[in-house]
Amino acid sequence: MSTHSVAANEGKIWDGGNEPFGASYGKLMMWFFLLSDAFTFTALLLGYGALRFSALNWADPDVVFQSAPGIESGAPLVFVGIMTFILIMSSVTMVLAVEAGHRNSKSEVVKWMIWTVIGGAMFLGCQAWEWTHLFSEGASITKNPFAPELVPYIEKFVSQGMSHHEATLKAVNEIPHNYEFTSLFFTITGFHGFHVFSGVVINIVITINAMVGTYQRRGHYEMIEKVGLYWHFVDLVWVFVFTFFYLV
């Protein structure tokens, strides 16, 4: 974009006719967009924090997230650990694609991009499984089977001869309770999942572009770098979501 760069201005980066941040306008816009998006996520997590601080009781994450495919209970955080690993892994493959882009190595870029797309898709699959599992336990955006105030009711229903699962469903449907936990969980992980989804779509588009040699002809792989920033940002948000929903 530096149509009027002048060699004499090198070293005086703020004097105009130059890129003072050493970054093209596209990269700058991506960075500032991510800054903006960070504020969006912060506001959502802020709402979560304020509501959780104000609540008199809260669901125990070790109880909520104790399942994995094939393991019904007793494996707290195992599945989310796998999800985190997948997302960090796909971030690594993305960096490797960017690094290959700097060497203008088309075949390596395509290889690492495909791995990144696979990683993103796997993460989305994991999230779909997790949500489905929570739905089957009676959770939804307005129903929180893990609310501590439901425990006495569930125990009462169980003592009347119901199975624990039936008792939970009955309690969650009939007893008014505080469902902030599930509302926030589905909203925030959903918003993050939407970002992952759009990231995967964009990744597929640039992978195809890289395959057909668009960036080869252009002479640089900056596009991979810009999309890479977005992809790492999605990973970055997950790091915080993981801490605040699953650990704290």
């Binding site: 004097d15 105009g16 006719g17 130059n18 306008y25």
Partner: peptide
Amino acid sequence: SLNYIATILNMRTVGMKM
């Protein structure tokens, strides 16, 4: 806004210091 910021930072003519 993103456009304005990127333009102001990157597209100033020669001699147009901040």
